[in-house]
């Protein structure tokens, strides 16, 4: 919010996107210039650079270039997410889903966050469950997977920057230890989350994760074609227990993808229930 964006010119954009492509396989289209400017301006400023050309030379000629390349790839390829994102569903999980499962006699509950990216979603769930005292009432396990092993490694580390705390209430920060510019999730919250690398569209994910009570799969389906969406939802259906809950992103729907779920209006959000 407070950093002035450094503009990237056409030649710099082409050179930088090639470096990113050669090192990550991810290609930035012309209309994504703003994304590189947004995500990298602060880094350039920290390194005293005022142009992207200078930064490109730093990536090529500095003795710490390998390390900087890792920093660059992390900054530009990790989809930005944040704690308590689309909070309505998280609150519903805490206020209704988990208490109802416990009331129905469940002593062991599994919640799956997929893909988990850098861990903000599963840790948000862990924090809310802890604050509501629900870890004391049942054996609750949060499983978190992502196809990208590097983001899983970052998630396991549990270190976050300010961008991950968009819109969180002030008292939420008590769940973190501050070290310089970094915020580390407290160990007592970390231990409830188990991280894995896995692809949600493949059938092998079903045996890898096993049966789960709740699935959070938000803002991902939109990137799949119809076949990919159907395969993923089929996997989810096979994995969910009865009752089983599926949380999608606020702009996503199962319309024309699956008729094996019932849509439930959960106050400020939508939850899908597996048909029994």
């Amino acid at each position: 919010m407070l950093i002035n964006s450094i503009k990237i010119n056409d030649q710099e954009f082409v050179e930088l996107k090639d470096i990113i492509y050669q090192n990550s396989g991810i290609m930035f289209a012309e209309n994504k210039k703003y994304l590189l400017e947004n995500r990298l301006s602060k880094r350039l400023s920290d390194l005293n650079f005022t142009t992207f050309k200078d930064y490109i030379y730093y990536l090529k000629y500095d003795i710490k270039k390998r390390q900087e390349l890792d920093t660059l790839i992390n900054l530009v390829t990790i989809n930005e997410t944040y704690f308590l994102r689309e909070r309505g569903q998280l609150d519903y999980l805490i206020s209704h889903i988990v208490p109802e499962l416990i009331k129905a006699g469940k002593r062991s509950i599994k919640i799956w966050s997929a893909p988990c990216s850098t861990g903000e979603e599963p840790y948000s769930i862990s924090i809310l469950l802890k604050n509501a005292g629900l870890f004391d009432k049942a054996n609750i396990e949060i499983i978190a997977t992502d196809i990208n092993s590097e983001v899983v490694a970052l998630a396991k580390k549990g270190e976050y920057r300010q961008a991950s705390f968009r819109g969180v209430p002030a008292d939420f920060m008590k769940n973190f230890d501050v070290q310089g510019q970094s915020y580390f999730i407290k160990e007592e919250l970390k231990r409830h989350v188990r991280f894995n690398t896995g692809n949600i569209t493949t059938p092998s994910i079903v045996s890898m994760i096993g049966k789960v009570d709740v699935i959070f799969c938000r803002n991902v389906l939109i990137y799949f074609d119809m076949d990919g969406k159907q395969r993923t939802i089929k996997n989810f259906h096979n994995m969910l227990t009865d009752p089983g809950y599926l949380c999608l992103g606020h702009s996503e729907t199962l319309n024309k993808i699956s008729d094996e779920f019932v849509m439930k209006n959960a106050g400020t959000c939508i939850i899908y229930l597996k048909k029994q």
Partner: peptide
């Protein structure tokens, strides 16, 4: 959107258009 952009890239058609 990102999905269609990826399709344009993978089919090498992106160069033909201004996005």
């Amino acid at each position: 959107n990102d999905h269609i952009t990826q399709v344009l890239q993978s089919t090498n058609l992106q160069k033909l258009f201004v996005l």
